[in-house]
Design a protein around this nucleic acid. Sequence first.
DNA 1: CAAGATTGATTAATCAATCTTT
DNA 2: AAAGATTGATTAATCAATCTTG
Lengths: 139, 139
Amino acid sequence: MNQRAGLLALLNIAYAAQAQVESRLADSGLSLAKLLALEALADAGEPTALSELAARLSCVKSNITQLVDRLEADGLVRRQFDANDRRARLATLTAAGRRAFSTGTRVRQQAERALLGSLSDRDRRQLTTLLEKLGRRIR
Amino acid sequence: MNQRAGLLALLNIAYAAQAQVESRLADSGLSLAKLLALEALADAGEPTALSELAARLSCVKSNITQLVDRLEADGLVRRQFDANDRRARLATLTAAGRRAFSTGTRVRQQAERALLGSLSDRDRRQLTTLLEKLGRRIR
DNA sequence: CAAGATTGATTAATCAATCTTT
DNA sequence: AAAGATTGATTAATCAATCTTG
């Protein structure tokens, strides 16, 4: 994409920043999508229904089905049955999943500091404010 | 994703903004990826090799192959042979492609104004400056 | 019928491998 | 061998349709 002003500038930067983080995470066999799912599970602290996971990650259920498929294939997550509702599947972190979450989070924070650390405190505050304004207007 | 500070805030806003534009474009049967390809062709003003297109859109060649497949199926673009280099394929806009480019661009600009127009001139200048700073640091 | 989850199709991007032409 | 393009596999997301259970 171009570096023209406006929306495309925002998209270009965001995608470039994400690519940067993804490439760091890839060294640990993770993607940002996978890491955020692990984080949601870790935050929940207990087996979590896939539909609940979809809500927390604000995406569609079928996306979670496939993401959990891949996480399960990686051995980071396990599916369990829900004793209270036999329609539901619960996802839980495995030991490897907890390890991946903690190293992945460290990697992500490092990459994030490398990116946003190039801004001064004042610039970073300004950026946060502007993104908040935009965010309010969007949804 | 969460609305936590930092990188994720940037990604959330960017994705939301893009989704907004995509949904407007979808009414005309376009996506942002397709529109940007049409724009690159219109800007070039002449039949353009797919590898050249990949360079202009800064993506991988195989992506362009498939994007042009879809644009060709939509009747917006045609592949031609290159008389000077028989390895190359040239993409050209059809009449429908030129029309789609012009209406799509109007839709995009409208959507963009609806998004960024919520910011004051000063805020918009600030945002541009900050994105430039970030962009310099990233690549 | 509605909720939970899955499956299949499609878009969009990547990478690796391949095929043709230079 | 290198350049241009394509193909096939994979990740990630969406939507529509389906199946099971409530």
